[in-house]
């Protein structure tokens, strides 16, 4: 993108070390995702999801938005992963009991679908010539806060209502059948 960064950095310069940290973050993301979608036990799968989300938060730091990275760790690692682990503890006591053998076709077909989609997106991304536009502002945390309460205030309120309804709905649904 930026021509000034095209010179290849050496390993021990600042740019080189930043590149090393980036590669570590990518490795954490990919390994966490592989654990999340491949492990037999659901608890390990949630742990892999946490590892993957921490890697994604690192990628957000590299994309110039520490605010979204912090929110990623707070919301996903702090809330969503804990909620999923609670659901596993409440609803999956028999992890090892397999109800019949899994279908032989599921693994290869799933892999083929995923490889096709990933390959398609990759080819699309590499072949397209993306246009770069001039930045209007710096995208800092202060700008996000200002725009969230001015330009995006309607969406902000709608999302708040969606979250409120989700909480109430989750309470109502999970409470059903508790009496008997």
């Amino acid at each position: 993108m930026n021509p000034s960064t095209l010179a290849s950095p050496t390993l021990l310069s600042v740019d080189g070390l930043v590149g090393v940290v980036f590669l570590i973050m990518v490795a954490i993301t990919i390994i966490g995702g592989l654990i999340a979608c491949n492990s037999d036990r659901l608890v390990r799968s949630v742990a892999g999801l946490v590892v993957c989300f921490i890697g994604v938060a690192g990628l957000y730091f590299f994309l110039n938005s520490p605010f979204v990275a912090m929110m990623q760790i707070l919301i996903y690692v702090g809330a969503v992963a804990v909620t999923i682990s609670f659901a596993i503890m409440l609803a999956a006591p028999e992890e090892n009991k397999k109800i019949g053998p899994p279908s032989i076709l599921a693994g290869p077909l799933g892999f083929a679908t995923a490889a096709l989609i990933t390959g398609g997106f990759t080819v699309l991304a590499l072949k397209t010539e993306w246009h770069v536009y001039k930045k209007l502002n710096d995208g800092s945390m202060k700008t996000i806060g200002l725009q969230l309460l001015t330009d995006y205030s309607m969406v902000f309120e709608v999302v708040s209502i969606v979250l409120l309804i989700a909480i109430l709905g989750a309470l109502v649904i999970a409470r059903e059948g508790r009496d008997n």
Binding site: G33, C37, L109, G110, T122
Partner: peptide
């Protein structure tokens, strides 16, 4: 794209 593909694989 890789994350998306892993998610699709897991869903299937």
């Amino acid at each position: 794209a890789v994350l998306f593909g892993m998610g699709i694989y897991g869903m299937v």
